[in-house]
Each structure stands twice: as C-alpha cells, then as structure tokens.
C-alpha cells in the first residue's frame, strides 16, 4: 500500500519569514506519526499545508493519493482535522455541535443519528451531552473535538497539539483513543512538544526551524543519536554543571530532574572517565555514567547541536 502522506521539498514562506524550509515526508498508513518541535518550528504550518489550508510556496505533497494543491476538496472529504485552538462553537451544546458537523460532513439522517450517538458513547460525552461546549473543561472539550473530527470516519486524522490544554490523565486517555483509531486503520499525524507523547508515536520527525532535524522510530532515534550521553548525578548540580561547561568536548548540558545529561561527540574517547576525573579534581562528589539516550537527548542533539554548529560557522 502507498504511503498516506508523502511530501517532497515542501516549503512555505510568509513574506521574508521561512516557516517550512523544504521537507520530505513518507508517512505510512494506519500508524501514528509525530511532529516534535518547539513553537515556531513549522509544525502547524506543515499540517495546514497538508490539509489544504495553506498553499506551499515550493514543493508538493500527496495526501491519500491526492495532490494537496490541485485536489484539496478530495483530500478534505477523507480528512479529520483538530485545530490547535478549540474551534467548535461555544454557544452550541455537545450534541448540537456534533450534529452540525455531521450535517456538514454530509451524513444522512440515519447516519447522523448513529454516528453522533456512537461518538458520544465512545468518548464519554454522555454526561454533558446537553451542555454548551463553552462550559466544558479542557479534557472534555478535547474529547468533543476528537469526536467531531472522527464523525465521518476519516482515513486520516491531523491533530495540531491536541493535548496542550489538558491534564495528564486526560492525555493518557486521549492517546488510548488514538491507538484505538489506528487499530481501525486510521492514519494519524500529530504535532506535539511533549517528549512523552512523542515517545508513543510509531514514527517521529523532529522539526527545527522549518527543517526535519531527525526522523525515525523513537527507538531508532535514541539508538542512532549522533552523540554520547553522559549522565551526572551530584548533590551540587550547579557546580557540576559549571565544571562540565569548562570541558571543551561537552556540546550541551541539559538537566533532567536531579540529573544532568551531557552530550559529547560520538568519537570522544572514554568520555565518562575524563568527566569523572574532572569532578574528582574539583573535589565534587558525583556519579558519572554513560547511558542510553532518551528522546529528550535526541531532541537536544537534533536541535541545539545543529544551532551551535550554525553559530560556530
């Protein structure tokens, strides 16, 4: 089967600002594909180009076999889109919102009734079906938005930072719902800036400054990280950090809870020994270990290192 989405050299400029600088994508069907990146990395712009809301400045994209520029309407019929901001109607009730969207999606009366009832049940909206959407909590709104986006059983679901206004439990439940949809054959493209969410995706593209900085499964990305990760634990993290910063080979230092992760070049020789010696020489009690990369490290390696390289050049 062909890819659900494929893009070649897809780029979008807003005047002098380059939001997306030419990216290639091949997103397999019936999987969750994640865009991980900071704000302004081009996630939303890419999603909007893929659903025909924005025209690409350069390049092309095929979504479910249709060219997004020339066959936008054909794409729209097979697509469910959840915007970053809640975009259903605050002054309509849950049921009214769903019924309206079902009409807009062209479902007939019987289909409408069945689908609306099913989504209310599936996403546990029954308890407040008669309440206006404007009075719902973040998690409830998000379930309503997902219900609305899936009313017409779309083949592809585009979710733009769907969990930014939602508590952790709702986020977990939300991801369960996404996996259930994938089980039914839906392809899901989701943008996020949460590492734990990115970790759940089947495949992942790390976006930075409008480019794909790294791409692959979360596992492969961690394995193939172009750096050595050294974990430092100490009672005086601030001092440990200062010491690490003085070592020329340390490319970046990030704090993860009570630990520091230092990234060094892959070719560095016995880096943990050198760092340990530096700690001892300074009289700082610290444990220094070489560890496997987390997605956070991958992200830092893919984004910050590249910027440092650019800054140095």
């Amino acid at each position: 089967m062909t890819a659900a989405i494929s893009a070649r050299g897809l780029a979008r400029h807003f005047g002098p600002v380059v939001a997306v600088a030419g990216i290639d994508l091949d997103i397999p069907r019936a999987s969750i594909y994640g865009f991980l990146g900071p704000n302004g990395s081009g996630k939303s712009t890419t999603l909007r180009m893929l659903c025909g809301l924005l025209r690409p400045t350069r390049g092309s994209a095929t979504v479910l076999g249709h060219d997004v520029s020339r066959q936008a309407e054909a794409v729209r019929r097979k697509l469910g889109y959840m915007t970053q901001r809640f975009s259903l109607w605050d002054d309509l009730s849950v049921t009214e919102n769903l019924d309206f969207m079902a009409r807009i999606q062209g479902l007939d009366r019987a289909g409408r009734r069945a689908h609306v009832a099913d989504r209310i049940d599936r996403y546990q909206l029954g308890a407040f079906a008669g309440r206006r959407a404007g009075t719902l909590s973040g998690g409830e709104r998000q379930r309503l938005a997902l219900a609305a986006a899936t009313l017409h059983d779309p083949e592809l679901l585009l979710l733009d930072e769907p969990t930014s206004a939602v508590d952790p439990q709702s986020r977990r439940d939300f991801w369960e719902s996404l996996f259930a949809l994938v089980g039914r054959g839906t392809t899901i493209l989701v943008s996020t800036h949460y590492m734990d969410e990115a970790e759940r995706c089947h495949r992942l593209a790390i976006l930075d400054c409008g480019r794909i900085a790294a791409e692959g499964t979360p596992k492969d990305l961690a394995r193939d990280i172009p750096a050595t990760v050294i974990e430092v634990e100490s009672d005086d993290l601030a001092r440990a950090r200062a010491l690490l910063a003085e070592i020329g080979e340390v490319q970046s230092i990030a704090q993860l809870g009570t630990r520091l992760h230092a990234l060094l070049p892959r070719e560095a020789v016995e880096p943990e020994r050198r760092l340990r010696e530096a700690m001892v020489a300074a009289g700082l009690a610290a444990s220094v270990e070489r560890v496997g990369a987390t997605l956070e490290d991958v992200f830092v390696a893919a984004t910050r290192l590249r910027r440092d390289v650019q800054a140095a050049a």
Binding site: G52, L53, Y81, T83, R85, F86, S87, L88, W89, Q105
Partner: peptide
C-alpha cells in the same frame, strides 16, 4: 476570530 472557520474550511462545505 473565534477559530471556527479554520475547522469549517477543512470540511467539504
């Protein structure tokens, strides 16, 4: 302004 349009225009309407 309210963001409803972004959703509406991705439908077949």
């Amino acid at each position: 302004e309210r963001g409803n349009l972004e959703l509406l225009i991705t439908t077949p309407m």
